[in-house]
Design a protein around this nucleic acid. Structure first.
Lengths: 166, 166
DNA sequence: TTGCTCCTCACGTCACGTGAGGTGGC
DNA sequence: TTGCTCCTCACGTCACGTGAGGTGGC
């Protein structure tokens, strides 16, 4: 893989230019390359945000929480493939209803090829979501009741109006 | 009802003593009585909190947001029947998934014998909750999948261990 | 010079939670 | 004096939203 080091160094410089960030920083190729796989191509924040459907603020926030640590090229953040995979896991965790603190714990376990949940954590989370779902269902049912009773009320009022004007 | 005014005045003084707040304030009976129904009996914050299963902080917060305006007896808050009915409506609104700002708007409509929802507001809220429910269901399904695949993984690992030690 | 993308503060939002520090009568 | 309930700040939490003000190369 010593060959890759050289190739990636060139690729790093190229992608930096291709990204149009040559003027933001003179890329320290050695540093850019440290986390780079063959075929990796660093992305700037706006592109990552678009690809994952999140805001720039969210990405910076995750970084402030130490969930993401993108490489810096001067002031500019560069997200490599590893960073984007990690972002994917963070967003999965969010969809599963975990807090960022919980996600941080799940990601910082030795193996970080995925969210490492224990059976117990799964069960706890499922129970939490089931309770939440039930509360939502009750609310929906109640709103439907209000909606139909609203019609009844209208009819009642129309009826009494009718009687009154008679 | 002029008779009630006198009776309630005495009752107001009595309840104030019965509540053990005689030492917190010399009850201005006229003011205590202004919002009092026959059979009304003002409650202090801790009793209201217990009855509705909310915290003191929540009650004070609703007041800061102008959702509740309990009578004051010196520094002490007194919640009359009307206040408690209003609190009930606030909590119902919360269960239906409305924000406090929305609830404030729903309560400040001319008729405040209940939350006055329009058909449109009902539909909008139902749609909101349905979306939320769907997201929760998807999360639950995914967690169940992870749970079972976790077992599979365990079995796989046990299998490979077995092969390895063979 | 304008427009674009990037950046860093830093306060705002939502619905409270959580002390800190003080009061007043038994 | 201790214990109880009440009070008012006021900062903390959660996951960002939303400007403000500045940068750097086309």
């Amino acid at each position: 893989m010593a060959r890759n080091a050289t190739i990636d160094a060139a690729a790093g410089a190229l992608t930096a230019n291709a990204l149009g960030i040559g003027h933001f920083c003179r890329p320290d190729v050695g540093r850019i390359d440290r986390f780079a796989d063959a075929g990796d191509h660093p992305m700037m924040i706006a592109e990552v945000a678009r690809e994952f459907g999140v805001t720039l603020r969210a990405l910076r926030f995750y970084e402030a929480k130490r969930l993401l640590v993108p490489q810096r090229c001067g002031p500019v953040r560069l997200y490599h493939r590893k960073d984007r995979e990690r972002l994917g896991l963070i967003l999965t965790g969010r969809r599963l209803g975990f807090t960022l603190a919980e996600i941080a714990a799940l990601l910082n376990k030795p193996h970080d090829k995925g969210l490492r949940l224990t059976r117990e954590q799964c069960v706890t989370q499922i129970n939490l979501l089931e309770r939440q779902k039930r509360r939502t269902e009750i609310a929906i049912a109640e709103l439907r009741r209000i909606y139909t009773s609203f019609y009844r009320t209208l009819l009642d009022e129309a009826g009494s109006d009718f009687r009154r004007t008679e």
